[in-house]
Simulated assay, not measured.
Amino acid sequence: MKIYLDDERQTPQGWVRTYWPDEVIELLQAGGVEEVSLDHDLGDDQRGTGYDVILWIEEAVALHDFCPPVIHVHSANASAVEKMRAGVRSIRQLAQKHRQDHELKR
């Protein structure tokens, strides 16, 4: 499954549309998500932003050996994009470290 989080843009063909971070997180918890594409600004910061999904994935990888999907960022908010990309880099590093640790234990 491919998940597209956005409040305004048209959903690409083959992607599942979500509007809020909690929807994305619920799908991630259910499993089977191969890719996510995240917008940052979703129209109601009280309900969350795309960055909240990044934070959830990062914590799940660090604490629960969660295997992260491929993560794309498609926000027009330049400063948020940088923050989100930094989170994606951290997720990749954590996931790589977990893979290496598991290989060493074998």
Rank of each mutant, 00 (worst) to 15 (best):
V53D: 00
T18R: 11
S79C: 07
G43W: 04
I25D: 08
S90Y: 14
L42E: 02
W20F: 06
V70H: 12
L5K: 08
H72T: 13
R85K: 15
A30S: 12
L63M: 06
S37L: 05
D44T: 02
H98E: 12
V88L: 11
G48Q: 04
P69E: 06
R9Y: 02
K2Q: 14
D52N: 05
H40E: 04
L5E: 08
H64C: 00
T18P: 01
H72A: 13
H72Y: 09
L55I: 06
G32M: 11
D65A: 05
P21I: 03
D44V: 06
A78V: 12
V16S: 04
P69S: 08
E34K: 15
Q13G: 13
L55F: 07
I54T: 01
V33N: 03
H102G: 14
V70C: 10
S79M: 12
V36W: 09
E34D: 15
I91R: 02
V61I: 04
K2D: 11
Q96I: 02
G31Y: 12
Q29Y: 07
T11V: 10
A76G: 14
V61C: 07
R92P: 00
H64A: 02
R85Y: 11
A76D: 11
I54V: 05
S37C: 13
L104Q: 07
M1C: 06
Q13E: 15
L38G: 03
Q10P: 09
E34V: 13
R47A: 01
E82R: 15
H98I: 13
V73R: 03
I71D: 04
D41P: 01
V88W: 09
A86P: 03
L42Y: 02
E35I: 07
E26L: 10
E59W: 04
R9T: 06
V61D: 07
Q10C: 03
S90T: 14
M84K: 10
G43P: 06
M1P: 07
G48N: 02
D22L: 02
Q100Y: 03
I25V: 11
Y4L: 01
H102W: 08
Y4K: 00
T11L: 07
G50Q: 06
R92N: 09
K83I: 09
D65K: 01
Y51H: 15
W20P: 03
L42R: 01
G48W: 02
V16M: 07
T11I: 08
V70A: 15
Y51Q: 12
A30L: 12
L38K: 04
E59L: 07
T49G: 13
P69R: 01
E59A: 14
L5Q: 09
D6S: 07
V16G: 00
Y51P: 07
C67S: 09
V33H: 04
D65V: 00
T11K: 03
W20G: 02
Q46I: 13
R89S: 08
W56H: 06
E35M: 13
A95D: 15
G32Q: 12
Y19C: 05
A78W: 11
P12Y: 10
R92H: 12
L94Q: 14
I3R: 02
K83D: 14
R85S: 11
P12C: 08
V33K: 02
P12N: 10
M84P: 12
E35A: 15
V53N: 00
I91V: 01
R85I: 15
Q13V: 14
R17S: 04
D7A: 05
